[in-house]
């Protein structure tokens, strides 16, 4: 008996690490990859309000999705928002990082100030900016009170301009994070290069433009990946700031998915839209992760 016990004990000891890891791994396999497969399957059925696995229709939902006007609006908004969000956050983040790198008194305070919005929920951000840009009671009214009588800011209720309010709120929330990344990158540059540049006669501007900024390539890439990822997923901010409106003017893939799945009883279409979101993100993340881990092996 004791021999058998010790054999079991030995086996346990040998496999203990894997056993410890396995619950998390099993959870990941089931709840991530299993679910992805499930949703993929649903996207190929004619499910309406509830999953209906019997009504298999292959890829029929996808062309249907693409013909849906709301989806086209969502994609348009996605591109507009994504582009502006990434570019403005990137430029602003780099700009602020460079400014903060100039031996500023109170740098810690300023850094904290630029970064704190990241700690907020997108719902809080959306709520705050919704009030701030409130036509009639918000910024517009304040400008009137200060004498700019003709100032108009009704973007929130303007179907053509509403998407840009989301850009503003999004930039406000995330640019501090990009700034932190660039600041870390700037600080990682060999100080002796700056001395060499000084001796070479380069002005501060030239030093940044010709030497420092070109070296931050790794940071651009990381910032792009993170921002793109956040842009594609953005749901909370849209819900809180515009609710997808006015009308459906600020529809995004995430809000589209939610409404078609849970309120419009078009689960099959909703699942298809979720798959599209996944594939878009995967197209960016997977090569990036692959390149990163590859580099570490070589380096």
């Amino acid at each position: 008996m004791s021999e058998k016990n010790s054999a079991v004990a030995d086996w346990l000891r040998q496999h203990l690490p894997k056993l410890v890891l396995s619950p998390s791994f099993a959870i990941t396999i089931f709840f991530v990859y299993g679910f992805i497969l499930y949703t993929a399957f649903i996207s190929m059925t004619k499910s309406k309000m509830l999953p209906n696995l019997s009504k298999f229709v292959g890829f029929e939902n996808y062309p249907k999705l693409w013909k849906t006007l709301n989806w086209q609006v969502a994609l348009d908004n996605m591109l507009v928002f994504g582009f502006l969000y990434i570019v403005i956050c990137g430029v602003l983040g780099l700009f602020l990082a460079i400014l903060l790198d100039q031996k500023i008194r109170g740098e810690g305070f300023l850094r904290t100030t630029y970064l704190y919005p990241m700690a907020l929920s997108f719902i809080v951000t959306g709520t705050a900016w919704k009030w701030f840009l409130n036509p009639g009671l918000g910024l517009e009214k304040s400008m009137h009170a200060w004498g700019f009588e003709s100032f108009k800011f009704d973007w929130l209720i303007n179907p053509d301009m509403a998407i840009y309010t989301i850009v503003i709120a999004g930039v406000w929330q995330s640019s501090g994070f990009v700034m932190a990344m660039f600041l870390a990158g700037l600080r990682g540059i060999d100080g002796e290069q700056l001395k060499a540049a000084q001796l070479d006669g380069a002005s501060t501007f030239q030093t940044y433009w010709r030497i420092i900024i070109p070296q931050l390539r790794a940071v651009y890439l990381s910032a792009f990946v993170v921002l793109a990822h956040m842009a594609i997923k953005s749901y909370d901010l849209v819900v809180a700031l515009t609710g997808g409106g006015p009308g459906r003017a600020t529809e995004m893939p995430a809000t589209f998915m939610y409404s078609y799945t849970f309120t419009r009883n078009q689960m099959g279409i909703g699942a298809a839209s979720a798959m599209i979101m996944l594939m878009t993100i995967a197209a960016i993340i997977v090569p990036y992760l692959y390149a990163e881990t590859r580099e570490k092996q070589d380096g």
């Binding site: 002796e192 290069q193 001395k195 060499a196 540049a197 070296q215």
Partner: peptide
């Protein structure tokens, strides 16, 4: 310089 300080780009 000790670390040569060459401009990598």
């Amino acid at each position: 310089f000790q670390s040569y300080a060459l401009y990598p780009n």
